[in-house]
């Protein structure tokens, strides 16, 4: 079947099967490989994108279900001039990523969190990230980056 959706502001369409997941359509159909797949039990969150403004796991939604929707992926998160957005810049400033694989999902979840709760506490950030796994950072600097992106003070990253 044919599906059409607005992805990062641009109308896109393509042929999919019923069983084609949204993440498969984005990666394979549209070549937007920034959205990653890290598990098959809807736990890791590497595939988080926004559908009609809400964070969803693109591995747990069919492309057909996103027909007609507005989808935002990591490729659509930078500022219009190509510079890093506030959240992206905070991740770089505070070393909130290492291998980079979970990062797109982390950024998309962080954006959803700050939309709902612009000044979260550290505990709220940690709780909100329940559906995003990272194996590299120990979450320390991810939490710090999100706190910084919310405009709240954090001490310098580097110690020693």
């Amino acid at each position: 079947m044919k599906v059409s959706m607005k992805v990062n502001g641009t109308g896109m369409s393509g042929e999919v099967e019923g069983r084609t997941l949204l993440v498969e359509f984005l990666r394979g159909g549209l070549g937007l490989t920034g959205t990653h797949v890290g598990c098959d039990t809807s736990q890791c969150g590497a595939c988080v994108v926004h559908v009609n403004g809400e964070a969803v796991k693109a591995c747990t939604m069919f492309a057909a279900e996103a027909d007609g929707a507005e989808v935002t992926t990591i490729e659509g998160m930078a500022n219009a001039d190509g510079s890093l957005s506030t959240i992206q810049q905070a991740f770089q400033d505070h070393h909130g990523l290492q291998c980079g694989f979970c990062t797109p999902g982390m950024v998309m979840s962080a954006a959803a969190l700050l939309k709902e709760n612009p000044k979260p506490t550290e505990a709220q950030v940690r709780e909100y990230l329940e559906g995003n796994l990272c194996r590299c950072t120990g979450y320390h600097n991810i939490v710090k980056a999100i706190m910084a992106a919310s405009g709240q003070a954090v001490e310098m990253t580097a110690a020693g």
Partner: peptide
Amino acid sequence: DVRFLTGKGRYTDD
């Protein structure tokens, strides 16, 4: 970080 933060990393599955 810039490529990883903007979805431009190139992993094997890409």
